[in-house]
Simulated assay, not measured.
Amino acid sequence: MNPITIRKAKTDDVIELSELFYEFIGVGSDLTAMKIQIEITSNNPNYYVAVACDGNRVVGTAMGIVCYDLVGNCNPFMLAENVVVSSEYQGRGIGKLLMQALEDFGQMNQCNYVILVSGSKRETAHKFYESIGYSPDHKGFKKRLKQQI
């Protein structure tokens, strides 16, 4: 196994990203739309889509989005989304590397905090997030506005 590296996602990563997301949620991705989204987010300084690589193979990903805030010092906060590590690579510290990359991005953007949502039954993920300093002392809610096809 090669040392794991973290880098910004590229449009060439869409097939491997799609495979990761399929493994995670069992839903296929529109590769053309994903490629367009990666191009858009790559050019938007408020987005960071990180990928973890074992050599040239993408084995994990996480996305950070800097959001403006109107409260207190009005510094932004960051939303973490699409955090996935291939089951073959879980337990090797890759999730920690990805989350650290997002937190570094958030600190560079002077974010006050990071928020994320994790499915209520994903106990292993919850333990992971707690182990890296995320507090479960808030309750999150999610409402789907559009059904995935």
Score class of each variant (00 low, 15 high):
residue 28 G to D: 07
residue 45 P to Y: 08
residue 59 V to K: 00
residue 25 I to N: 14
residue 137 D to N: 15
residue 46 N to T: 11
residue 41 T to N: 11
residue 134 Y to C: 04
residue 119 G to P: 04
residue 120 S to Q: 04
residue 100 Q to I: 03
residue 24 F to D: 01
residue 103 E to K: 13
residue 16 E to H: 01
residue 34 M to S: 06
residue 18 S to C: 06
residue 91 G to F: 12
residue 111 C to Q: 03
residue 54 D to I: 04
residue 11 T to N: 08
residue 146 K to W: 07
residue 15 I to N: 15
residue 96 K to T: 07
residue 81 E to F: 03
residue 121 K to G: 06
residue 114 V to Q: 08
residue 91 G to R: 10
residue 87 S to W: 10
residue 131 S to D: 04
residue 61 T to R: 14
residue 135 S to G: 05
residue 56 N to G: 15
residue 103 E to C: 10
residue 114 V to C: 10
residue 102 L to Y: 00
residue 141 F to G: 01
residue 52 A to I: 06
residue 115 I to V: 13
residue 18 S to D: 07
residue 105 F to G: 01
residue 71 V to I: 15
residue 39 E to I: 09
residue 94 I to M: 08
residue 11 T to K: 11
residue 85 V to G: 01
residue 7 R to Y: 00
residue 45 P to I: 09
residue 34 M to C: 06
residue 11 T to W: 00
residue 59 V to A: 03
residue 139 K to C: 11
residue 130 E to N: 05
residue 115 I to E: 11
residue 22 Y to E: 10
residue 69 D to N: 11
residue 121 K to I: 05
residue 31 L to G: 11
residue 62 A to M: 14
residue 44 N to Y: 06
residue 33 A to Q: 13
residue 11 T to D: 06
residue 25 I to R: 09
residue 140 G to I: 06
residue 11 T to A: 09
residue 113 Y to E: 10
residue 77 F to N: 03
residue 12 D to E: 13
residue 33 A to E: 13
residue 45 P to R: 12
residue 95 G to P: 04
residue 92 R to Y: 15
residue 58 V to T: 03
residue 20 L to T: 00
residue 144 R to N: 08
residue 148 Q to W: 06
residue 54 D to C: 05
residue 56 N to K: 15
residue 115 I to Q: 10
residue 86 S to N: 11
residue 88 E to Q: 15
